[in-house]
Nucleic acid binder design. Structure first.
Length: 565
RNA sequence: CGGAGUGUAGCUCAGGUGGCAGAGCACGUGCCUUGGGAGCACGGGGUCGCAGGUUCAAGUCCUGCCACUCCGACCA
């Protein structure tokens, strides 16, 4: 491709809408343009990267035996109502009506659609297993689109769905996808972690996320460098035995005056005790309106995902001051003793002795509280959020904490959708059984941003070879110099013959501008033809800075072979 | 959904107290120039987000709306 005939509108300045590196550089280098909040054009450069990522994903999915197909974006409400997700999915689901006033949704994911296809066309165990996938545009009416391609309202995903005759077989399909995902992310040149994850609203038995390590990611993960344990903090565990305080003899319960002392820090300071001996009692209101009390040690944070899963709730929120008042409670002085609300106790409080709690009375706390002498919990539950330094649940080494971008998520769905939609097959024993499903997503467009987050410097993008829009960038520094132009043309033609994706910058602009654009766009290999040609030399460079050398022009063939890789 | 901010040329932004709509970059033409976003000259380019109001006069003041961005809530 000749730059003079190509469309790559670069920007010298950063558009005010962009904050993070991937957004800034993808805009500036001419890969994307914004159409509306969370909605983008892919320009030729961006489209090339998109296609390269798609093809890598496609290759590995095909090799794993998955079958590509294409499902509609526009889906009838009836399908969503069958599984209840028309209501459950909430405002994130893009909804619209046709001229007959019938409800439709733009698909954010396709469990219902694919299950509908399968139930209509599969009858027997002999028809299974299958793994279907598609690469397609998805929609989510995000509350807050952000960071360019990282969180859009329209985005491109690869989604796959496996159908098996038993959970055992489904786990095999799941494991195969897990291996396939490792191959894909490795080939994409990403620094990533596979972590244990919560299934969230998709549902299912268990799941793993593939997280690209990046400062601007929304995924919080903990991991163990020693044994390899890694999990999203939503679901992460830790070895709490090691975090316990030594046993003590029980002292008599005592109510103490703590005027205007509310927060855990204030209470610990006021009473002169370790924050670990102050227990906070949090009142949550579940989505069905039920109030529950959660007692947790002062130094730990409640993990709301664990809370939702335990109570099988879709939503829960901390009681507001008004709600507390309606329950007859005083903000800052809530405690489990004499409480009408059922008290669930985090395991951090198990075996804790002589601790402090609110007295459910303004300006009073109890000290020397002990279980079960002073109150009886409904149950001890793991409600706490793991954090850096906690002992690994597997090997007890200190956990590390980091953030990343979720670019892949695999779920063992089980029979949630097949049962709801009656996708049954007749097994060998003649009995009708629900198909066991798995689903497997990869955020294709988000991967473009994820890669840039990991691969850039102050001058622009540094693409990994596998997904770069071009492999070789030839800079003709002076287009008026016939010798330079002829040399560039020769190199360009030879590169094309060898099947190298090559971009020749033959535009009549200053040398400096070409270097700036080249750095911004980030093509891995660069051949610079300029002044040194007078001595018969051209310059071979790598965008990542690992190579910059003058080479005799007669060695062009060797260089191109090397670049071809 | 709560909080904050922004909206003026393609981009980045300036336009106290109301009084002829600007700069840099980008763009066009010409000359000149070609190793890190060159120089000179001339030129084109505006529904000042939209609607209403106050006023002799509104980019500027008032009201409402819209869009975008950031923080938070939320986030298969």
């Amino acid at each position: 491709m000749r730059a003079s005939k190509f469309f790559m509108p670069t920007l010298k300045e950063t558009p005010s809408e962009a904050e993070v590196p991937s957004h800034i550089y993808l805009l500036r280098a001419g890969f994307i343009r914004k159409v509306a909040s969370g909605i983008y054009d892919f320009l030729p450069l961006g489209f090339r990267v998109l296609k390269k990522i798609e093809n890598i994903v496609r290759k590995h999915m095909d090799e794993a035996g998955a079958l590509e197909l294409l499902l509609p974006i526009l889906t009838p409400a009836e399908l969503w109502k069958e599984t209840g997700r028309w209501d459950v999915y909430g405002k994130e689901l893009f909804r619209l009506k046709d001229r007959h006033d019938r409800d439709f949704a733009l698909g954010p994911t396709h469990e219902e659609t694919i299950t509908d296809l399968v139930r209509k066309n599969i009858r027997s165990y002999k028809d299974l297993p299958f793994n279907f996938y598609q690469i397609q545009t998805k929609f989510r009416d995000e509350a807050r689109p952000r960071y360019g391609l990282i969180r859009g309202r329209e985005f491109i995903m690869k989604d796959a769905y496996s159908f098996d005759t038993s959970e055992q077989m489904a786990i095999k399909s799941y494991e195969l996808m897990k291996e396939t995902y490792h191959r894909i992310f490795k080939e994409l040149g990403l620094n990533y972690l596979m972590v244990e994850a919560d299934v969230g609203a998709i549902g299912g038995k268990f799941s793993h996320e593939f997280v690209v390590l990046a400062a601007n990611g929304e995924a919080h993960i903990v991991y163990c460098e020693n044994c390899g344990y890694a999990a999203n903090v939503e679901t992460a565990s830790y070895e709490f035995e090691l975090d316990r305080l030594p046993p003590e003899e029980e002292k008599p319960l005592e109510k103490v005056y703590t005027p205007n002392v509310k927060s855990v820090e204030e209470v610990a300071k006021f009473l002169g005790v370790d924050i670990k001996k102050v227990v906070k009692t949090l009142i949550y209101i579940l989505d069905d309106g039920t109030a529950v009390a959660v007692a947790i040690r002062g130094d730990r944070e409640v993990n709301e995902t664990k809370l939702l899963n335990y109570f099988k709730a879709l939503d829960a929120h901390l009681a507001s001051p008004q709600e507390l008042e309606e329950l007859g409670l005083v903000e800052g002085f809530v405690g489990p003793i004499g409480l009408d609300i059922p008290v669930y106790v985090d395991r951090s409080v198990e075996d804790l002795h002589n601790f402090v709690v609110g007295a459910n009375e303004k300006d009073y706390h109890y000290i020397n509280v002990n279980i079960p002498r002073d109150f009886k919990p409904v149950e001890f539950v793991d409600f706490s959020t793991a954090r850096k330094g906690d002992p690994c649940p597997i090997c007890k080494s200190p956990l590390e904490e980091t953030t990343g971008l979720e670019v892949g998520h695999i779920f063992l769905l089980g029979t949630k959708y097949s049962q709801a939609m009656r996708a049954y097959f007749v097994d060998k024993d003649g009995k009708e059984k629900p198909i066991v499903m798995g689903c497997y997503g990869i955020g294709i467009s988000r991967l473009i941003a994820a890669s840039v987050e990991q691969n850039h410097d102050k001058n622009g993008i540094i693409w990994p070879e596998s997904i770069a829009p071009f492999r070789l960038h030839i800079l003709a520094l002076n287009t008026k110099d016939k010798n330079i132009m002829q040399t560039c043309e020769k190199i360009y033609e030879k590169a094309k013959q060898k099947g190298i994706d090559v971009l020749l910058d033959d535009r009549d602009i200053s040398a400096g501008a070409k270097f700036k654009d080249a750095d911004l766009i980030g093509i891995p290999y660069r051949i610079v033809v300029g002044k040194a040609l007078k001595e018969g030399k051209i310059e071979l460079q790598r965008r990542d800075g690992t190579l910059k050398e003058l080479v005799d022009v007669s060695l062009t063939d060797n260089i191109l072979e090397k670049i071809k890789g």
